[in-house]
């Protein structure tokens, strides 16, 4: 990811969105309730889309469906103009690492028994990159996330939480992807480490043709990173739009509650938010939570 490549090859490519999710519905098991209910959104090339909602709202399920980790009940997922809704494991390999992921838990997303270089080169091996090239690209990826040369020979336990999340990001970026699904990629981190990783994610996309689907439960984190945002509640989209618009002028009642409930570290501003929240609660016909 150290080089910036011009990517728009044809006018068509510019017009097709990077990812399109159409009327996606997913249920777990045969009879369970819908975990995701008729969700549609698109992500443009190089765009960051925030997906926000509380626990159980279906955001992780959507991310996993895009990565092919849960079966889709109905609807379509189109990546760079190609329907990937029900791609077989073998066909998924033909995406050539254009679609990658960073998971929430920096402790379980790396195999404790393998040096991290193995984790980074696995997708390259699958894509058939020759060995010499692989070493070079692994080192470049580690360098781009600020890890010292030689890190590829160390084991996950030798890294702190924040460093592991960097490793996870390097592993996502090593194939030079177009889209990275970041599922709660910073939620398990402490404030200072979270800031490091957020800055890193923001630096990496600058000038590159790299889009993120940034899944989080924290408004402020999404606000920091995402250009557009989709608000989910109980599997349904309640609101979507430009982040700035949605934050300044939230339309859905749920979005307003979510924003008012998120506390800020300023006593006076927080007192205002609290009041707003109490009013919203009082005015709501149906109780929240």
């Amino acid at each position: 990811m150290s080089t910036v490549e011009p990517v728009v090859t044809s006018p068509d490519a510019a017009a097709t969105p990077l990812l399109e999710v159409r009327n996606l519905s997913i249920r777990y098991g045969r009879k369970g309730p819908l975990a995701v209910d008729d969700v549609s959104f698109t992500i443009g090339r190089g765009e960051t889309l925030g997906l926000i909602g509380e626990s159980g709202s279906g955001k992780t399920t959507i991310g996993r469906a895009i990565l092919g980790l849960v079966p889709v009940t109905s609807g379509r997922i189109i990546f760079e103009g190609r329907d990937i809704t029900r791609l077989s494991a073998a066909d998924r390999r033909t995406l050539q690492g254009d679609l990658r992921a960073v998971f929430q838990d920096p402790f379980s997303s790396l195999d404790p028994r393998k040096p991290i270089g193995d984790a980074l080169s696995a997708p390259l091996r699958v894509a058939g990159v020759p060995r010499a090239d692989r070493t070079f690209r692994v080192q470049a990826a580690l360098d781009s996330v600020g890890l010292a040369p030689g890190s590829e020979e160390r084991y996950p336990r030798q890294f702190s939480g924040g460093q592991r999340q960097r490793v996870a990001i390097a592993r996502a970026l090593v194939t030079d992807p177009r889209l990275v699904v970041c599922d709660e990629a910073v939620s398990a981190l402490d404030l200072s480490t979270q800031a490091q990783v957020l800055n890193l994610l923001s630096d990496l996309r600058a000038g590159a043709d790299l889009g993120y689907l940034f899944i989080a439960h924290d408004m402020a984190v999404v606000e920091f990173l995402a250009q557009r945002v989709v608000v989910l509640n109980r599997g349904r989209v309640v609101e979507q739009g430009e982040t700035r618009e949605v934050m300044r002028n939230p339309q859905a009642h749920y979005t307003r509650v979510l924003m008012a409930a998120s506390p800020v570290p300023d006593p006076d501003e927080q007192a205002r938010r609290r009041q707003a929240w109490q009013q919203l609660k009082a005015s709501a016909s149906a109780p929240v939570a």
């Binding site: 800031a195 957020l198 923001s202 700035r244 800020v264």
Partner: peptide, 23 residues
């Protein structure tokens, strides 16, 4: 405080959070 995205009330113009190096 500078690393906390919640502390930023208006994102206009702010592109960075404080990075406290190390742990």
């Amino acid at each position: 405080l500078a690393a906390d995205p919640h502390a930023i009330l208006d994102f206009e113009g702010t592109t960075r959070l404080a990075s406290i190096p190390g742990q």
